[in-house]
């Protein structure tokens, strides 16, 4: 469960995987897209990030997967202050994070199998060590017959599942997903959600940014609600919001 921001900022615990303390972020000289965010997520937690378009969900994820730096405040990831990480430590930290990007970022010239195996190759594993696992994972996400296909030949939902397979293939400690069910039907969305739950059950911390209120409501997982760059209490939307997180 997420904790009260003030408590979390004062009491970093050993099982904390992510902590934001007074974090703001802006692009260039523009206005703050995130403002004074404080939160603390324990290892193995499962959170949704919700909020209207432009609320800062993707920016918040960018800060977590180390693709952006805060303009103010402190981000602690895996117990380390990100701003103090040596440049050589950043790639190693990124390898502990799996990301399903909103625009998927699949490499069109690589087969589905190569795309899915990419994080393992970058981490320096030998093909013999992961061939079977990658094939099994692709089969699990329904791409068993499409392993040799190039992304441009895949349907939207297939691409989405491939991006998810790539994000989870190296059993990341944190899984971030930006609208992971945006291009899939309801049944596949639930299946993907169950994959995330399964990973979470195995110890992965899962953070999902989504507009899919139905998914959020069904999950009863805590919610971090962003509104104009600030964490706000989730607005009342009916009985399905019982699992909203606290900020």
């Amino acid at each position: 469960m997420s904790r009260n921001a003030n408590d979390a900022a004062e009491d970093p615990s050993a099982d904390e995987i992510l902590r934001f303390a007074g974090v703001s972020m802006r692009y260039g000289r523009g206005p703050d897209v995130l403002s004074d965010i404080s939160l603390s997520l324990p290892r193995g937690s499962f959170h949704f990030i919700t909020g209207p378009s432009g609320a800062g969900k993707s920016s918040l994820l960018k800060l977590i997967y180390l693709a952006a730096k805060p303009s103010a405040g402190t981000v602690r990831l895996f117990g380390e202050d990100v701003a103090r990480m040596a440049p050589g430590d950043l790639p190693r930290a990124r390898r502990r994070i799996g990301v399903v990007f909103q625009d998927l970022l699949l490499l069109d010239h690589l087969s589905a199998f190569d795309n899915a195996a990419l994080p393992l190759r970058i981490a320096g594993h030998k093909p013999s060590e992961y061939r079977g696992d990658v094939a099994e994972l692709l089969t699990w996400v329904g791409l068993g017959g499409r392993m040799n296909a190039l992304p441009p030949t895949l349907a939207g939902g297939e691409k989405q599942r491939l991006a998810i397979a790539r994000a989870v293939v190296n059993r990341p400690e944190i899984l971030l997903a930006d609208e992971p069910t945006g291009n899939v039907d309801h049944e596949m969305a639930l299946r993907i959600y169950r994959l995330f739950v399964e990973l979470n059950r195995l110890g992965t911390t899962v953070i999902i940014a989504t507009h899919d209120q139905d998914l959020v409501a069904r999950s009863s997982r805590p919610v971090l609600h962003l509104d104009r760059g600030q964490l706000k209490p989730l607005p009342p939307q009916g009985p399905q919001n019982g699992g909203a997180g606290r900020v």
Binding site: Y65, A67, R95, F101, L107, P119
Partner: peptide
């Protein structure tokens, strides 16, 4: 971008 975000070293 993909290699970088997947943890490839510079």
């Amino acid at each position: 971008q993909v290699l970088h975000l997947a943890g490839a070293e510079d």
